[in-house]
Simulated assay, not measured.
Amino acid sequence: MQFPQSQPPAAQQAQMSLFEAFMAQPQTAPAPVLATLEAPWVTDDPEVFSELSLRGATGNCLSLLAPMLRELSEEQDARWLTLIAPPGSLTQAWLRDAGLNRERILLLQPRGTQSALQLTCEALRLGRSHTVVSWLNPLTSTARQQLITAARVGDAQSLNIRLG
């Protein structure tokens, strides 16, 4: 079945693709929205430590988080994706419904007097995880440096998520 074209062929050829239109725009200063980034996004070593701040309704935050965690759970690296002390809304059912590879994920909770920071640093140092995701809030500069050091030792990535 053929559908009639809504535009004459000459008009279709003159139309740029979205990618071409974006690339054709002159490079200018960053958009004002970028100026609102907070200091924790800037780190000394972006290769081993990242921080993501999500604010809003829990459902919306989880919807934004799902594709990122799904991608991390499908990494080609044979090591684990480790989630340290995730919020209560990140249940096994949510992980399944979000399409994460649950066979490649460790969910860890601190025990006894151990803090979530200590457990995160230990998981990073051991190097059995390609990425260790934590929910540490607030995260001091000293704690951030501890995560960076531990991630370097274990050749791992540290991702801290701040839910607001």
Rank of each mutant, 00 (worst) to 15 (best):
R104D: 06
M23N: 14
T58K: 05
Q92W: 00
L81N: 01
L83T: 00
C121P: 04
E74V: 06
F22E: 10
L65C: 04
D77H: 13
G88T: 03
L72I: 03
A85I: 03
A93H: 11
T120S: 14
P30W: 05
P67Q: 10
T58F: 02
T91I: 08
S63V: 07
W41M: 09
T28I: 08
Q92V: 08
D77V: 07
L107D: 02
C121M: 10
P40T: 14
F19R: 15
A78H: 13
P9Q: 08
S115M: 01
R111M: 07
L54Q: 02
A21I: 05
L72Y: 06
P26W: 10
N101P: 01
A39V: 11
E20L: 15
A24W: 01
R55S: 12
N101V: 05
A93C: 04
A78K: 15
V48T: 12
Q27C: 06
A35S: 04
R70Y: 06
P86H: 03
L18M: 13
L64I: 02
M68G: 09
A14L: 14
L106K: 06
Q114G: 01
S73K: 03
S73Y: 04
W80D: 01
L62T: 03
D77R: 09
S6G: 06
P4I: 15
P32C: 02
P8S: 08
M23F: 13
P26K: 06
Q76V: 12
Q15K: 10
T43G: 06
S50C: 07
S53R: 07
A39F: 08
T36R: 04
S89P: 02
P87D: 04
L52V: 10
R102T: 15
W41H: 12
L81W: 14
P8W: 15
S50N: 09
T36V: 05
E74S: 08
Q118M: 13
L34K: 00
L119G: 03
A35T: 09
S53Q: 12
Q12E: 12
R55K: 13
W80G: 01
S6M: 11
S50P: 04
R96C: 02
P8L: 15
S63I: 07
L100G: 02
W94T: 00
M23E: 15
Q12Y: 07
A116T: 06
A21L: 14
